[in-house]
């Protein structure tokens, strides 16, 4: 593997200073499950890896009445092992359970998945559906970016040289809400999404109408997409197959899939509609109180 330096600062300030010194030749190392492979094959050529796992702010995992704070370095297994996340932010737990196998989940973080900015990243549609905001720190201070505005192209995002993702902030979940993420892959596990869909819904007290909905799509464009109009169109609509099918049709309008080894554009377009319907129905079932099993430590 390419020669590089390694540092593991314990403060955010030290990490930012190090990143500033090395400018664009430094990369942040969290779980390393994408980064180490990319350096090994030569896709990335950093001179410095900054291990961020010892920085307290990046290990925050705090669920309260104010919402959820998820440090950028928290690994997937801690996300789906957290019963508060499993019950209130179920889509995120769904994503973390299917990113790689158990070995990958021991290390890979949601923050790393976002910063890697892959079009098919499994956690990003869930982050968008759950209204996550990225807290970024850098030499000029802190700023916040909505996750749907974070990725700018395959492997590209809004982080400037010297900046790093600190945490993801999620608003508190309201009553009668539910969320789900699902993807299509030809295998049962360990594969890259052909299409991935995140959905989050809020229902009225009678649970027969949508109050609001957010739908997000992965692997059908250069970046994960927020299907805002499709979700907004559900507000006030009855919960039935017809309204859900209309939302799926509306979501497909913004999909711009390509044909590659994992599927043709035509197939991806079709699957997008199917998955939006299924993700919405599963989110509705959860909003109606369907229990999501939480096994601590699994």
């Amino acid at each position: 593997m390419r020669d590089f330096e390694y540092e593991a600062p314990i403060t955010l300030a030290a990490a930012i200073e190090l990143a500033g010194k090395h400018n664009s030749s430094a990369r942040m190392l969290a779980g390393g499950t994408d980064l180490i492979d990319q350096v090994r094959v030569g896709r990335l050529a950093p001179d410095m890896l900054i291990d961020v796992k010892k920085i307290a702010e990046l290990n925050v995992l705090e669920h309260s009445s104010f919402g959820l704070r998820l440090g950028a370095a928290v690994p997937c297994y801690q996300v789906y092992g957290h019963c508060g996340i499993v019950s209130d932010y179920a889509a995120l737990a769904d994503s973390c359970r299917i990113i790689g196998g158990v070995q990958i989940q021991s290390r890979a973080s949601v923050g790393g998945n976002l910063c890697n900015s892959g079009p098919a990243a499994d956690s990003i549609p869930s982050l968008i559906a759950l209204e996550a905001v990225a807290l970024i720190a850098g030499p000029k201070g802190r700023r916040e970016v909505a996750v749907e505005d974070f990725c700018t192209g395959p492997g590209k995002n809004v982080l400037a040289a010297g900046e790093l993702l600190v945490e993801l902030k999620f608003p508190a979940r309201v009553a009668n809400s539910g969320s789900h993420y699902r993807r299509f892959i030809p295998r049962n596990e360990m594969d890259i999404a052909v299409v991935g869909v995140g959905a989050s819904v809020v229902l009225n007290d009678a649970k027969d109408k949508f109050v609001s909905a957010r739908i997000s799509l992965g692997a059908v464009a250069p970046t994960p997409l927020f299907a805002k109009a499709a979700g907004d169109g559900l507000a006030g609509q009855p919960v039935n197959d017809d309204s859900i099918a209309k939302a799926a049709a509306a979501a497909k309008v913004i999909a711009k899939p390509i044909t590659d080894m994992r599927g043709t554009a035509e197939f991806r377009m079709h699957i997008t509609g199917v998955l939006v319907e299924r993700a919405l129905k599963a989110a509705v079932a959860r909003a109606k109180g369907e229990h999501v099993d939480c096994k601590v430590g699994h």
Binding site: Y6, G31, G32, T33, L49, D51, Q103, I104, S106, R107
Partner: peptide
């Protein structure tokens, strides 16, 4: 590259692919 699991070891009580861990970590 983290697909096959042949290099699985237990690091601080969790299974990991040792090909995707730097020894300095």
């Amino acid at each position: 590259n983290g697909n096959c699991g042949a290099c699985t070891v237990i690091l601080n009580g969790r299974p990991v692919d040792s090909c995707l861990v730097l020894a300095v970590e």
